[in-house]
Design a protein around this nucleic acid. Structure first.
Length: 308
DNA sequence: AAACAAACCAACCGCCTCATA
DNA sequence: TTATGAGGCGGTTGGTTTGTT
């Protein structure tokens, strides 16, 4: 019949993770790579269910995660995408590879929702139209297009789902790798006379193997992955100023196990293609300025100018 | 300084989709 | 074809931290 059972429900530990558990998990993933979560508690002896291990890794331990305050730039993107996609946090997170869906969700619920509610009140006092993108437009092959129908929203969602970030690691693995290396370093110093393990370089295996060329609804390749990989300004995966890849694939080093030569060539070819019309609109300055204006209306906290 | 309230966020829960036998 | 479970996702909870009185 189906697959073997996941994990015993008995004896499963819940609650906050300890540093020791983190170290065990990180060490295991360093050796085997992320994935096959069912085997993680079995092979590590962690008294956690596979889901908990995966969640801990993806939301906290995974290298490349940026913590702390969201920039105005990130806020704008989140608001922008949320207005299009709704509460599809994973899809939104795919455009902000340094942030987890959980982080974005929390930030939305604790900050942005209130901010936008305040903005909506102040805006609707002056005008009856919906304050957020009710009349936003994006360019299309057939000209300007209003984002209003369900099919538009579904198209946006489809784009986000096809974004390679769901499977693509962040380009800033190295920086966060330092933190985990430090964690491991401290652990090794106190528990073993042997030298600490080398910093993580890459993961081999399925984690990157499934990366497929992403295209928009009209078949234009999405470039998100390349700017994500550029290692430049990673507030956002796009080089929204130039609207072109920030670097070639060959400049993107460090992941030895992912792409085959064919895939590399495919992706490099994509890099030469233009942004899709929808993605251009997603990062359109005028639309983003609407967000910035509304943010300023609400409490004026966005002192940093919107950069896209 | 203490008590209370509000905000924050890590983690859990339950549902859904897809892969597998 | 079908039953089953893994993995993924969004909603929610509850413990902790920070701010206010």
């Amino acid at each position: 019949m189906g697959r073997p059972p996941c994990c015993d429900k008995e004896g499963i530990k819940k609650g906050p993770w300890t540093p020791e558990e983190d170290i065990i998990l990180v060490s295991y993933i360093q050796e085997h790579g992320p994935g096959n979560w069912r085997s993680v508690p079995i092979n590590t002896g962690l008294m956690r269910c596979s889901k908990s291990c995966r969640l801990r890794w993806t939301n906290y331990l995974r290298p490349g995660i940026k913590r702390g305050n969201f920039t105005a730039h990130e806020e704008g993107i989140i608001v922008h995408l949320q207005s299009l996609l709704g509460n599809r946090w994973a899809a939104i997170a795919s455009y902000l590879p340094q942030r987890t869906d959980n982080d974005i969700k929390n930030y939305w619920n604790t900050h942005l929702k209130k901010k936008l509610a305040a903005a909506a009140n102040s805006t609707s006092a002056a005008s009856n139209r919906h304050p957020i993108f009710a009349d936003a437009t994006f360019p299309s092959a057939a000209g300007s297009h209003t984002v209003s129908s369900n099919s538009d929203v579904n198209q946006m969602a489809a784009i986000a789902r096809r974004s390679p970030f769901a499977d693509c690691p962040s380009s800033s693995y190295a920086s966060s790798m330092d933190n985990i290396s430090k964690l491991l370093d401290g652990f090794m110093k106190t528990n073993s006379p042997s030298p600490p393990p080398p910093p993580l370089q890459h993961y081999d295996g399925g984690y990157y193997d499934d990366v497929k060329p992403a295209v928009d609804v009209v078949g234009n390749p999405l470039l998100s992955s390349f700017d994500c990989m550029s290692g430049a300004d990673l507030d956002c995966c796009f080089d929204v100023h130039q609207q072109q890849p920030a670097s070639s694939f060959m400049e993107y080093g460090g992941y030895g196990g992912g792409y085959g030569d064919e895939s590399k060539q495919q992706l490099m070819n994509q890099a030469a293609a233009p942004l899709s019309s929808i993605e251009k609109w997603l990062f359109d300055e005028a639309a983003a300025e609407q967000v910035a204006d509304l943010m300023d209306l609400s409490d004026g906290c966005c002192s940093v100018p919107m950069m896209f």
